[in-house]
Computed example of a mutant assay.
Amino acid sequence: MNKATAYHDELGDFFARNADTSPYNAYTDRPAMLQLAGDVSGARILDVGCAAGHYASELLARGAQVVGVDGSATLVRHARVRVNDEAELHVHDLEKPLHFATDASFDGIVCALVIHHIRNRSQLLAELRRVLRPGGWLLVSTTHPTADWRRFGGSYYSHEWSELPVANGTMSIHYQRMPLETFLGELLAAGFVLEQLIEPRPTSDLEEIDASAYDKLHQAPCFLAVKLRRP
């Protein structure tokens, strides 16, 4: 992510704290993506947009070797603490080629809630295909198009860049809306094969902690997640 979309400074600190217990991150997207990943023991995984290291930490605990990359130095600092330096982490603008990674050097790639922040998605997807070994998997999650349609209104087919207020409106997240056909179309055009698509629901643990959030996230989708393969 570039300067306009990466979570720098106060926004990075807020996200690092919030992702620990957020109904959206901790109980919906993260469990769904880890379930899609399956058995990662011994696998070398690239965590694209690794943020504060929550996914990297979970993957390490499951026996994976992890390389993480994020455009925010603030978040990478949090990630280093979270993974206790057990993962290789890079501060890197995802709008630029992944010069630190060699061809076919990863068994799997996790790209959680990142793709909608990227402007040059075709370049990033080409780079992900390059560094993924043949037969390797790619996991991608994004905001659900219908959730953005409900939130911002206008046309479902909008590709506009939007500002989502967070932290009681004191900060905002900058990202691009896109319909399902754009999201999937770009992944398929990049040469990946779709294996599974899910609309993640929160885990049952959330019901005991925040029943209203649990009910809300079971009524309408918030995220969309896919598992793809490189042929």
Score class of each variant (00 low, 15 high):
6 A>R: 12
6 A>G: 08
11 L>P: 01
12 G>K: 09
13 D>W: 11
21 T>Y: 13
26 A>G: 05
32 A>H: 07
35 Q>D: 14
35 Q>C: 11
36 L>G: 02
40 V>W: 00
41 S>G: 13
42 G>K: 03
44 R>F: 10
47 D>N: 02
47 D>E: 03
54 H>D: 12
54 H>L: 15
56 A>I: 04
57 S>C: 15
58 E>V: 09
62 R>Q: 12
68 G>P: 00
70 D>K: 05
71 G>S: 04
74 T>E: 08
77 R>S: 15
77 R>Y: 14
78 H>F: 09
86 E>Q: 15
87 A>N: 07
90 H>G: 09
95 E>W: 07
96 K>W: 07
96 K>M: 14
98 L>K: 00
101 A>C: 14
102 T>V: 12
104 A>M: 08
110 V>R: 01
117 H>R: 02
129 R>Q: 04
131 V>F: 02
132 L>W: 04
133 R>P: 04
137 W>A: 08
145 P>L: 04
151 R>H: 14
151 R>M: 13
154 G>C: 09
156 Y>G: 05
157 Y>F: 15
159 H>A: 11
160 E>R: 13
161 W>P: 05
161 W>E: 10
172 S>N: 10
174 H>W: 11
174 H>K: 10
178 M>R: 11
184 L>S: 02
184 L>K: 05
185 G>F: 01
187 L>H: 03
190 A>I: 01
192 F>Y: 05
197 L>K: 11
198 I>T: 01
199 E>T: 00
203 T>S: 00
205 D>F: 13
209 I>E: 00
210 D>F: 10
213 A>N: 01
215 D>F: 14
216 K>C: 07
218 H>T: 04
220 A>V: 14
225 A>T: 00
227 K>R: 12
